[in-house]
Nucleic acid binder design. Structure first.
Length: 251
DNA sequence: TAGGCCATCTGGTCCT
DNA sequence: AGGACCAGATGGCCTA
């Protein structure tokens, strides 16, 4: 699916749930029916059932039509389950800091999961650093009873926002600001790009390393300025985010 | 053409 | 007993 070139999902990950003719034309199903007709085992793999009166035995008592109906029901449920899983995966992709759009290849499932994991780790790390910085700010201004003396208001923005803006450079340096991927939020975003950290008032953190992990992900991703890419060309790991790499998935 | 990714079917297992 | 979950098998589509 993600390998589609003409579109992001010429083969939808969540096709319409329907037991249509495609199922009945399916070779597996045809083989299934054939085997039922001949009474031969459909697979070389012997049944693990010990004949202790389980479902298999009950199914053996069913007539062919009942068996077929049951199989259709089970297949439909499994299909729906997988579609729900794919929907959840799509929902995860939507919130990931990765270029999205009709001309961008969809992240594979494994890439989505790896990216999500590392993204969470990066956010957690950023949050911790932010807490430290906030603590430092309030700690330094403790004698003056107000952070406003440290951060004189220069606009109508709330004090909290001003403090956030003042912390932005530090936060940004935490995640690395020298990457070629760094760009002002209004410059490099595609119409379908998800919001990055631009809403915080500082350049979006480079996130190409979010997918840095022992897995070798396939290349062929489209490159967008300012957008992270899981391909091998976009894997330089800023020293400030090296800790994330150290937390990579252990397999 | 090989490899990656995916959807689907299927049987087994576990849970309610 | 029925449904959810899981993993293996299979085949299709796409890209390098």
């Amino acid at each position: 699916m993600d390998s589609d070139a003409s579109s992001t999902c010429s083969r939808s990950s969540s096709p319409e749930l329907a037991v249509d003719s495609s199922f009945f034309s399916n070779k597996v199903f045809q083989a299934y029916c054939t085997d039922r007709e001949t009474g031969q085992p459909r697979s070389e793999k012997p049944s693990q059932n010990t004949g202790s009166g389980g479902k298999s035995r009950a199914r053996a008592d069913l007539c062919k039509d009942d068996m077929q109906d049951l199989r259709l029901k089970v297949n439909g449920r499994e299909r729906k389950r997988m579609h729900d899983l794919n929907q959840a995966m799509d929902g995860l992709r939507e919130v990931m800091p990765y270029a999205q759009g009709p001309s961008v290849r969809k992240l594979s499932k494994i890439s989505t999961l790896v990216l999500a994991r590392n993204y969470i780790l990066m956010l957690s790390s950023s949050l911790e650093e932010m807490k430290k910085l906030v603590g430092d700010v309030y700690g330094a201004s403790g004698q003056s009873h107000s952070a406003r003396r440290v951060l004189p208001p220069t606009s109508a923005a709330p004090a909290s926002q001003l403090q956030l803006l003042s912390l932005a450079p530090s936060l940004h340096s935490l995640v690395g600001s020298t990457s070629q991927h760094t760009i002002m939020p209004t410059l490099g975003q595609t119409p379908h790009s998800p919001p990055l950290a631009g809403y915080l008032g500082f350049p979006a953190p480079p996130l190409p390393t979010l997918l840095k992990d022992p897995l070798h992900l396939s290349s062929g991703y489209r490159h967008f300025p300012g957008m992270p890419c899981p391909c091998s060309l976009c894997q330089p790991l800023p020293a400030s985010t090296a800790s994330l790499h150290n937390l990579s998935m252990g397999k």
